[in-house]
Each structure stands twice: as C-alpha cells, then as structure tokens.
Design a protein around this nucleic acid. Structure first.
Lengths: 161, 161
DNA sequence: TATTGTTATACTCTATAACTATA
DNA sequence: TATAGTTATAGAGTATAACAATA
C-alpha cells in the first residue's frame, strides 16, 4: 500500500477534493479571460472549436447538463460574441454551434491560463505520473455511463473513441 | 501518447465525467441504504467513524462545504439516528460528531454497496492501475488547497498525511 | 408521433447575514 | 474581540413542464 490510511485512500473524497480545486481554478481563469459560464463555458468553447458544429443537445450531453442549461449558457456565450448559432441545413430544428474568430482568440488565451492552472494542480506529480493520470481518467470517463461519451464524440468528430 | 485526441485528453472533461458517474452511483447507493444527504452523508459518516469526534466545522472543511450546510446535513443524519452531537468537554461551543451503533451498522451496509459501485466505475482498469489511480488522486487531493486537507486530517486523527 | 430548442416556473442547493453561547 | 453553531433569508443553479417549429 502506497496510499496512507484514512480518507486519503477514499476515492470519493480524493475525487471531490481534486474536483473542487480544479473548478475553483478554472472559474477564476474563465473570469479573468472574460469567458461566461465558468468551467462549462470553457468546455463549450473547446467542444465548439473542435467539431464541425455540434448541436446544442449534443453539447449538453457531452457536458452532462440539461438541454435547457445549454440554452442559457449559449445565450451568454453568443452575447459575448464567442460562439455563433448557425442553422443546420440538414435539420432545420437543430443549430450548429460554431466558434467565432473572437471566440477562437479568447479560447486561446484561456487555454494558456489553464495550462498554468493545471501545472499547479498537478504539481505533486512528475511528468510521467501526470500522463498516466490523464490516461487513466480518460479511460474511466470513456466507460462512464449513462450517456455514452463515444456516441457524443462521434457527433463531435473525435475518432479517438 | 496513449490517450486519444480531442476532449478525451482534456483533464477537466475527464474529471467531470468520472465525478458525475461517481456521484450518481453513490447517490443511488445512499438512497438504497437510507442514508440521508447522499454522497456527503456518506462522507460525514465515514469521517465520524474514523476520528474521536471531529467538530462540525472540521467536518465541513474536510468536505469542502459551508458550516451551515453541515448543520442541515447533521440534522438529517441525527434524525435518522446515525450520528450523535456530543458536547465537547474542552470547548463548550463545539460539538463532537460521533457515529451511533446504528450509524456504524448502516455505514457498513453502505460501504458494501459502495465497493460494488467502485468496482463498476473502475471496471476499465486492472487491479494495479486502480491502485495507481487511487494513489495519484490522493496525492493531488493532499496538495489541493485552499483548505489544507492535512490540517483537517490532524483533527480527524489520520496519521497518513 | 417524436425531436430540437426556447421559455416560464418551481425547486434544490448553497451562500450571506444575524443571532446565541461560549472562548 | 473572535469562534462554534444555529436560523432565516436571499441568491444561484438546476430541473420540470409547456410551447413552437420541424422531422
């Protein structure tokens, strides 16, 4: 056993503590970069910048939030001029979410700040351990239902899944 | 790079997805075991069962919640007969939170269900990988401010920190 | 009939402030 | 004066339901 006894070995407590630290840091970074919606605003921008314009519903499932939440989130991001709601020519009910040029620039700035944030969060680990952690978490996230992340990833055109 | 490209390599997204899956499972398990407060109720019981009776404030900091939230949580847990608020002889303002016998039994039942829950969540990883993940997360959690977990751990009498 | 997105409403969770009692 | 705990209130975040447009 390399892990100490007590709560330090408790997966739930560790996850919660790391999550809180991460959310706090990203919230601060998003506020500093004037990106509405905090951590979720960041994730929407990231997803919008990768795919060819996922629907609002696909983004909501990707982030694990209700579709009504996505409406509010996108309202703020669109008002800030960071994303664009473009009608889907193949399905006039749906809207494809795309990054504007300003959004791409802003996301780049935020990513820079986030890299420093992650560095600080991962400070207790060395380079190899960080990569291992990322890999393990990614594999867990891929297997974590009930929304199949790969199904969403297909719509986001991420072949890695 | 062992991780696929795209959001799967995004630490924040992976953390969020794993966290959501974990919270959903623990919430269901706590409900099935009739433990109020869901994941937090479980963590309070765990902490109360380990130490010699931490104060409500210490528990709140340990869980990363406001002290007012802890009051409501403990109201529910006490009403369910799982914990006891005992006056601290050394400081009559404070109360030591202790598990009742019924609480110890109930916690044991919940822990059993939680072991199966974690098994399912960690299914994509083999035994060694699971231990590595637990260790890495524990180290990150220990270093994650602003509340120094070790400071709380001292009060909870956990020498591992 | 089912689905996407929006809106309005209600609900839950959490934070803020004020209070009591101790220190 | 500061702290532990409680309570009441307000606020943020989220879910529910109803609706319009489209499939």
């Amino acid at each position: 056993m390399t892990t100490p006894a007590g709560t330090a070995a408790d997966l739930g407590w560790s996850l919660g503590a790391v999550m809180r630290a991460y959310l706090r840091a990203v919230t601060a970074a998003a506020a500093a970069a004037d990106v509405p919606g905090g951590p979720r605003g960041h994730q929407v921008l990231t997803a919008a910048g990768q795919g060819v314009g996922a629907s609002q519903l696909a983004l909501a499932q990707h982030l694990g939030v209700d579709r009504t939440v996505m409406t509010y989130l996108l309202d703020d991001l669109e008002r800030a001029g960071l994303v664009e709601r473009r009608p889907d020519p193949a399905d006039r009910r749906a809207r494809r979410i795309l990054l504007t040029d300003a959004g791409r620039v802003r996301l780049g700035e935020l990513e820079g700040a986030l890299q420093r944030v992650e560095e600080e969060l991962l400070a207790p680990l060395d380079g190899q351990e960080r990569q291992i952690l990322r890999g393990l978490l990614a594999r867990l996230a891929a297997g974590a239902g009930p929304v199949n992340p790969c199904q969403v990833a297909v719509e986001l055109e991420q072949p890695g899944c």
